[in-house]
């Protein structure tokens, strides 16, 4: 069988399996993004808080989540939360069986923890780059705190943070590959399965790499458009 038919969509081609894996990869990244951003905003808020203990917490979280390998974080979450769940389960029902955390949920949690730490730093930088005078102007005009956030802060945070968040998004897509190690059927694991059956490792891993590559390049193109839009009101030096 030649290589093209191996990648076909039919019953004896692996194209459809790879595509289903690609879908899981994209789902994982898209589910993680809002959760990670939420954590990021919380961490940025904590790091900029007036409460010293909140600032300390923000700094400790950022240092830990950025300094530990993503793979280790994944195992910490996957095994740790499963153990906690089991302990809690057994306390409620002594003869309960062993529950396992779904790899997808473990992946979303672990990647969100990491994304939250990195995006927290990006967002903190964006908050600090805000022009203080504009916020004062908003106060002087009698805008409520929510309106200040919506009309003055958020559009500019978006503009300042977009390049950094874009990089993190591409990193997130690449980090999803790690979840294949805990047996989530994402693109890389489906590729592994295809390699086991076809004995064509280079061909298939190259195709997988190309798929990730296309995702990254597409993301960069979309980000360039978003950045242009976010900066449309800014005069260039």
């Amino acid at each position: 069988m030649n290589e093209l038919s191996l990648l076909g969509l039919g019953a004896d081609g692996w194209g459809d399996e790879l595509l289903s894996g690609l879908l899981v990869t994209v789902q994982l990244a898209v589910t993680t993004l809002p959760l990670g951003l939420l954590i990021g905003f919380a961490i940025a808020g904590a790091s900029l808080s007036e409460q010293p203990w909140l600032r300390r917490f923000g700094r400790a979280y950022t240092t830990a989540a950025r300094g530990i390998p993503e793979l280790l974080t994944l195992f910490l979450v996957y095994n740790g939360i499963a153990m906690l769940l089991n302990a809690a389960w057994r306390a409620l029902d002594p003869d309960a069986g062993f529950v396992e955390l779904s790899p997808f949920i473990a992946g979303v949690i672990a990647l969100s923890v990491v994304f939250g730490a990195f995006s927290g730093e990006v967002l903190r930088g964006a908050f600090q780059a805000l022009d203080q005078g504009q916020i004062e102007a908003g106060q002087a005009m009698g805008l409520s705190r929510l309106d200040q956030f919506r009309f003055i802060k958020l559009p500019q945070i978006w503009r300042f943070a977009l390049p950094g968040l874009g990089n993190l998004w591409v990193n997130l897509i690449k980090d999803t590959a790690l979840v294949s190690i805990i047996a989530l059927n994402d693109l890389l694991r489906m590729t592994n399965i295809a390699v086991g059956a076809t004995k064509q490792p280079f061909t298939f891993f190259f195709v997988a790499c190309a798929a990730y590559w296309i995702l990254s390049i597409l993301s960069e193109l979309v980000l360039a458009v978003l950045e242009k839009r976010a900066n449309r009101g800014v005069r260039r030096a």
Partner: peptide
């Protein structure tokens, strides 16, 4: 633009 894990598989298994 590609995960290092996929690159490692490409080299090691490929």
């Amino acid at each position: 633009g590609t995960p290092m894990l996929a690159q490692l598989f490409l080299v090691y298994f490929g």
